[in-house]
Nucleic acid binder design. Structure first.
Lengths: 183, 183
DNA sequence: TGTAATAAACAGACCGTTTGGTATGGTGGA
DNA sequence: TCCACCATACCAAACGGTCTGTTTATTACA
């Protein structure tokens, strides 16, 4: 406990759950069992630098996770189905969803910096890219693949929000069904 | 300036833009040009009571707004197209989207109360209901109408997030195209 | 109608706490 | 000895919230 990567890991989960302004530095250092000095040693520019590091880490983790699933299944239909099912399974056991989503951070964009916005934008772009590639390898044109990829990204992000507010996994189940009809 | 409904109106916009924890009471009272005493006169239980009042107000405003559009057009296809176009137009002129979305509040759910969660859930349910009714009056079964309605709600909510992070209205344009193919 | 009594509406200083952030002092290994 | 590493103590500012006092409507009664 206490390495830089562990700090990022824990802080990421907190940011995803409560949003940037919803988490204080004290909460973070308590969760990581480190001192404030240690935090500012690793992230001299403070909270926002930590957030951006978290977004960078999320980029790797999410990308790896999704690509792993997408490599396992030949078509987007099967891959997408498996991915959402995994999401639902996690939600039903843990009661919350953190992976694959960072809407909590995006939605506070108005009070955050341009650097954060760009980091978030990169993350979405990367996810869309994975979907789009698979769609194109399934035979779709680049244009329609992109459109569907964006829609999938948006629907899943929104679906997670619906699951969290309703405390049910039903929304994501419905969305999965409907999205699969698109391909 | 200073009536209860005006306070709610202004606070709602601030909450939507910056999230619950992203807005301080001081910012609210400055924007409304009221004193802290006045705020606590209208909302004795403080910030959270104000938030719930805002969500109630949003419920009315959004419902009215969407229903107005949906009454104008005979089919869901035309209505949905018009609705998203209106959303895009607002985004392109104002540079931000507040109407129809409250993801900023939902995504901080982890640090908010159960009462807030229920208020948000009611709002989503109402929006879905409007979509679903129109889909059923277009001839779809109740079950598939509900699924598509949920997907539309999620995709639009997520699409707004994408537009905000990318500073483009492209995502919503793409999503509009794709969603309309579902019906 | 005039006036006293009462309640609602509001203002703003103030409270304790927490915020993000800094400055300083030590400690262990090279 | 040196320097990365980190703990402690501390800071000003901002936070949400409370308090007391004052103004403004409203009502009651003569």
């Amino acid at each position: 406990m206490g390495t830089k990567s562990q700090i990022i890991e824990i802080a990421t989960a907190l940011f995803q759950e409560k949003g940037y302004n919803g988490v204080g530095l004290n909460e973070i250092i308590n969760a990581c069992k480190i001192s404030k000095g240690a935090l500012y040693h690793h992230f001299p520019n403070g909270k926002e630098e930590l957030l951006i590091a978290c977004l960078g880490s999320l980029n790797e983790v999410i990308t790896k996770d999704i690509e792993e699933i997408f490599d396992q299944y030949p078509t987007i239909k099967e891959a997408m189905k498996a991915m959402i099912e995994k999401l639902i399974a996690k939600f039903e056991t843990e009661g919350t969803i953190t992976s694959y989503t960072f809407s909590s951070i995006v939605s506070e964009m108005g009070s955050l910096s341009e650097a954060v916005r760009i980091a978030c934008s990169n993350l979405y772009t990367k996810i869309e890219g994975i979907y789009s590639n698979k769609l194109q390898s399934d035979g779709l044109s680049e244009e329609s693949a992109n459109s569907i990829a964006v829609t999938m990204t948006a629907a899943i992000e929104g679906g997670i929000l619906l699951c969290l507010t309703n405390k049910t996994s039903e929304p994501l189940k419905m969305i999965s069904q409907v999205l699969l009809r698109l391909v």
